[in-house]
Design a protein around this nucleic acid. Structure first.
Lengths: 209, 209
DNA sequence: ATCTATCGCAACCCTGAGTTGCGATAGAGT
DNA sequence: ACTCTATCGCAACTCAGGGTTGCGATAGAT
């Protein structure tokens, strides 16, 4: 890694190159998919020589991971509408929006199908999920406080139940995904939560908080 | 395909080779994953020369597709226990069992992550899903007839709701999947169905509850 | 205007996909 | 047991893409 020099004095044109290559990587990913993502094509699209790419990134995979990480600055809003239904709807819709944009679909495909085997990608996936979990926690807590949900509702279980139908359509059945999908996921999740089906899974007895 | 000769007179050792290569393909897939699935390794493991593989299959992908198709003779039981809960539990558990065996996990990884881009694989996925749908239809129909579920329950929606949490854990969060996961999926699905959250999705009736 | 980190370029090596021609062999039919 | 031919083994290819190296050119901060 050349970060030492980057902090030092002569930064050079490094920043431009980095940005150009990142953009080219994403673009190639969307156009041709992960399988056809070649270093030469990326370099060419970035107006940069293949060697330069290899000087900044150790290999093709690290390039991809880096490019994805750059475009993964998650800025998920934490809704607080005063009602769990509208809050969940906001969460689900923002989730859908994130992954239905062209860029989102490309990133999704890369992360979950193409480069799924890379440990860094797996870590990124977990991070994204954990991030959403952290942000959603107070939303659920408020709903419980308002008496809209059972006290022993498992936040992680609830979020997974919310995300699962959307992921299924995005990655497995490849059905169109839109706001209706998000709203449907909310209906399912709320029904399950209200029926106390979203308690901590591996605890046989409900926990007294 | 050379199945024409197989039916004709001089069958030769073709059948043995086919079987050996199929087995080797699956084995390599489980050991090293799709990315590291090389024709030479498969050939070597099958005790066969690389050329022979290329004489029977056009390329690496067709080999994989063929091997998967061979091991995808789905024999899903159609439960009829007289109650929807136990029926669904049986369905979900058989689903979990299918994909948690070593072979199942390998096939899953190949179909949904490695070779997800291949049209034949996509078709196979759809076929597997449609197959399960067809088999599950009478199960749901009986439940509706018994008055256990709302009359306008959407069978496809219900099955997707049942499968979604399991797929999520298998492919996305990579959590352990066992009977508890299946049972949890059943709880969620039943709660949603009983709350009439699993009606046909794109029927645009704005809440006629 | 200078000076040096960075980039372009060409020439490499290596692995794995896919091909070809020829000689060896298994195995079905007699 | 003996053909006889479809099939297989083998070696020697081509080709594309990943990854490396040495050297000369250039951008850009001071």
């Amino acid at each position: 890694m050349q970060s030492a020099q980057a902090v030092a004095r002569p930064i050079g044109r490094g920043a431009k190159v980095r940005a150009a290559v990142h953009a080219a990587t994403l673009a190639e990913l969307l156009d041709k998919g992960y399988a056809a993502l070649t270093v030469e094509n990326v370099a060419q699209r970035a107006g940069v020589h293949k060697t330069t790419v290899y000087r900044r990134w150790t290999d093709r995979e690290s390039l991809l991971v880096d490019a994805l990480a750059e475009h993964l600055a998650t800025d998920i809003p934490v809704p607080d509408t005063g009602a769990i239904e509208t809050d969940l709807r906001a969460l689900a819709r923002s989730f859908v929006q994130t992954f239905t944009s062209p860029t989102g679909r490309g990133i999704l495909a890369a992360m979950f199908t193409g480069a799924a085997h890379l440990p860094q990608i797996a870590a990124a996936r977990r991070h994204v999920f954990d991030d959403r979990l952290t942000r959603a926690e107070p939303v659920i807590a408020r709903a419980i406080e308002r008496g809209e949900l059972p006290r022993d509702t498992d936040v992680a279980e609830l979020l997974k139940t919310l995300a699962a139908p959307i992921y299924l359509r995005l990655l497995i059945t490849a059905e169109p995904v839109d706001e209706a999908t998000a709203d449907q996921a909310v209906r399912i999740t709320l029904a399950a939560a209200r029926a106390s089906a979203l308690r901590p899974v591996y605890a046989s007895k409900p926990t007294a908080e």
